[in-house]
Design a protein around this nucleic acid. Structure first.
Lengths: 229, 229
DNA sequence: TTCCTAAATGAATGGCATTCATTTAGTGGT
DNA sequence: ACCACTAAATGAATGCCATTCATTTAGGAA
């Protein structure tokens, strides 16, 4: 009795998502791109605490184990997300602006993108570039920019690493609570630090993290620039 | 029959640690210092993956729930460890050396200590200084050093934050695999980056992370120094 | 047709941080 | 000397987590 068979998609109850029956579906539901964008949506809504394999599967209306046909681990998902974010970093100034201005724009953009994704930093920091093509493309653009600016070949990678280390650390700093440096009851025992914190506060900057980032970035740019050919 | 009662410490089976019976023991087994040093020992032996509340409890011969009488969460344990490590950072050059040399020694020491403890970096980065007295003491020493060197009051905290951001990022870099930048099969599509990686490799440095750290640190020191009164 | 492989389900596993009821020991007040 | 209170331990339970495995189904190659 074929007429009695329940179709794979049953539209009589649109609220309750139609259960897929076991077995390979006629057309694939998942691939890495779909997983990546679902992960990004989930992170946007619930943060990295909300990014669990179960929640990711639920948002894709799929069983958790189905994800493992396309990624080998949760870390794999994080790598996919990381590489997507790398493609959002603005490298457009390389080739149109002087090298120092290009580095400046790249660095601010890089920090801004990853300050909303600090849980990825431990992943990127040890990730072989082979596993992250967009990230590699970013390095290529920056390398070309520095070479054309006259950076000695053997110092290009070290310069990028130094800038990147500063950027990653600064991305964390953006997420710090505003009163992180309030010495509270220990103020009397730390007069120099307490005075320095007060003095900065009196400047009334909206975003102290930006002040520190600008200070360090400009120091790095001029220091690295001094070593060109 | 009091003679039949099993004493709290039964030495007849020294291999099998005597089970404590339920209830408050005559003298306290745990405190924060004991927990901190057990955590450090465990991290040294099994790394941060091995640092679980259950393993920590086991190493102290205590039930996991007993830990919660002294810390409110696992994060609390990490904070205790972090603050202990801060006390190991060498700030001795402040007061005896010129400011730039003092910063140099401090920064290298700070990076070296935390490169073995990168999982703490996300914790420190957002940790109110009130919760970490040793860390605060370190800031005090550095602040005094910079003030005496003629740094303008309102730029001291930003300078420390910039240096610290670079140090944290560089600590991750130390842990990266040696071949992290090998572009593998994508070498042809990234000629500039590939050439730069090769060129650095040809220099034959033992620790490329040290080269990048030195480069960035010297740039920061001279850049920050240029802004003194 | 017949295999092989890809891609889904659903059930299970073991580990994790944390909570709670319970037990016991010391302490401060009357 | 008693009594109430609090501190510090046990042990059982909770709920969540990533991951694995047996099973089912579909499509494509031989």
């Amino acid at each position: 009795m074929p007429a009695a068979a329940r179709p794979a998609t049953d539209s009589r109850h649109p609220e309750i998502p139609a259960k897929r029956r076991a077995g390979r579906p006629s057309s694939a539901v998942l691939d890495q791109a779909v997983i990546t964008s679902a992960a990004l949506r989930l992170i946007g809504k619930s943060g990295y605490d909300g990014l669990t394999m179960a929640a990711l599967a639920r948002s894709l209306q799929v069983a958790p184990s189905a994800l493992y046909n396309h990624v080998t681990s949760k870390r794999d998902v994080l790598v996919l997300v990381e590489d997507h974010l790398a493609s959002l970093v603005d490298v457009s100034a390389f080739g149109t602006e002087p090298w120092d201005e290009a580095v400046r724009q790249w660095a601010w953009s890089y920090r801004d993108v990853f300050s909303k994704h600090t849980p990825l930093i431990p992943v990127i920091a040890v990730l072989p570039v082979t596993d992250a093509p967009q990230t590699l493309a970013m390095y290529e653009t920056v390398s070309q920019g520095l070479r054309e600016a006259g950076f000695p070949q053997e110092r290009i990678v070290s310069s990028i690493v130094a800038l990147e280390s500063f950027i990653f650390g600064s991305a964390y700093d953006v997420t710090a609570p505003a009163d992180i440096f309030d010495p509270g009851s220990m103020a009397e025992s730390t007069p120099n630090f307490t005075a320095a914190v007060r003095s900065l506060a009196e400047q009334g900057h909206e975003r102290p993290a930006d002040v520190a980032f600008s200070l360090g970035l400009e120091a790095l740019i001029s220091g690295l620039g001094a070593l060109r050919k």
